[in-house]
């Protein structure tokens, strides 16, 4: 490979207001956002070689099917594909005008918030402690990580048995305190069980990434911090936390996505496949209507609504929250 130093160095300018055209032009040249690095390569072809495999997979296996999902959202379709009636925005208005849908949306937001906060917090706490100890460190790590490996249907089965209305240990425990825990009948009891299991399953994930983030903090930095440090908390807050910020930002987005999307299997098991009057998330509703109920148009419309909400959320996070993340 021939070498030609071709990187450019661009300090961050304070941008004057641009015309739409100029903005578009900058965007085309790839200068729209603040550059990821102060120093970058400027080669015409090499990035394409690196980017192409991922891009190809994404276009074929994500965009192609997703476009079909968006198209179906404007139709009422017989599932076997014999006839489809164009109904415009009916599927959207049907979903959004149902009180059921709105209360599901409210629950989803609260659920995502609680699950994200708890699993991130506990994952971070355990990772920081595991990073600190030397004696027995690998045992702790193995134990904490290996929980992640338990098969989801069995994890859910365990959760279901623990909360069994008649013989579940948690139900009996609550009974000792005079509380009649009825998961599957009482809305908030079910919500509690769902949250606990969802958090339990996600802690190891956060633990692994926080730990790997912590372990890549150079020893020299730690020692410097140790010399400076007044208290452990100050050391953590001023030195370690900023270094963890990129990982934390990654995990924040992943955890929100997890709480929104990947928890539907847990919900399905807790409500024993019959949601009745129990809380559920928006994705569970999509799964219920689309996969179980074969309402392709209606569930596609719900998917699109969800995508728009989450896309907005992600853009906001990338544009505003990431400014506070300091890289390297």
């Amino acid at each position: 490979m021939t070498h030609s130093p071709s990187s450019i160095s661009r300090p961050l300018p304070v941008p004057p207001p641009l015309s739409a055209r100029a903005r578009l032009a900058k965007w085309w040249r790839g200068e729209a956002t603040a550059p990821a690095k102060r120093v970058q390569f400027d080669r015409p072809l090499t990035p394409w070689v690196f980017l192409l495999p991922q891009l190809a997979v994404v276009v074929i296996f994500f965009y192609w099917p997703s476009v079909q999902a968006v198209t179906s959202s404007f139709y009422l379709e017989d599932p076997f594909g014999f006839s489809a009636t164009f109904v415009g925005l009916d599927n959207y208005t049907d979903a959004l005008s149902s009180g059921e849908y709105l209360s599901t949306a409210t629950f989803t937001a609260g659920f995502a918030l609680v699950v994200t906060a708890l699993s991130l917090g506990l994952g971070l706490l355990l990772a920081v402690k595991a990073d600190k100890v030397i004696r027995g460190a690998s045992i702790y790590k193995t134990v904490l990580i290996s929980v992640y490996a338990i098969a989801p249907p069995v994890a859910a089965l365990i959760g279901m048995m623990l909360f069994d209305m008649h013989i579940g240990p948690f139900t009996q425990l609550a009974g000792l305190f005079g509380y009649d825990l009825k998961v599957g009948v009482n809305y908030w009891d079910t919500a509690f069980a769902m949250t606990l299991i969802a958090v339990w399953k996600q802690i190891p994930y956060n633990f692994i990434f926080f730990l790997s983030g912590l372990q890549s903090v150079p020893v020299s930095v730690r020692e410097a911090a140790l010399i400076d440090a007044r208290t452990g908390w100050a050391r953590f807050k001023d030195v370690i936390l900023p270094l963890l910020a990129p990982t934390a930002f990654f995990l924040l987005i992943i955890n929100i996505t997890y709480a929104l999307f990947d928890t539907f299997a847990i919900i399905d098991v807790i409500v024993k496949d019959k949601p009745a009057n129990n809380p559920m998330t928006l994705v569970y509703k999509i799964y219920l209507d689309g996969f179980k109920g074969n309402d392709i148009g209606g569930s596609s419309a719900q998917s699109v609504i969800l995508m728009v909400i989450v896309a907005a959320l992600t853009v906001v996070q990338f544009r505003f929250l990431e400014r506070r993340v300091h890289y390297g």
Binding site: Q54, L55, V58, F62, Y63, W64, P65, S66, Q68, A69, S72, I253, I254, T257, F261, D262, F264, V283, I286, Y287, G290, F291, I296, S303, L306, M307, V310, A311, T314, F318
Partner: peptide, 16 residues
């Protein structure tokens, strides 16, 4: 283009 794929799990677009 790549980061929007964070948003939609396979289950939601499984039929297409």
């Amino acid at each position: 283009m790549i980061f929007t794929t964070l948003l939609l799990p396979l289950e939601v677009r499984i039929m297409p």
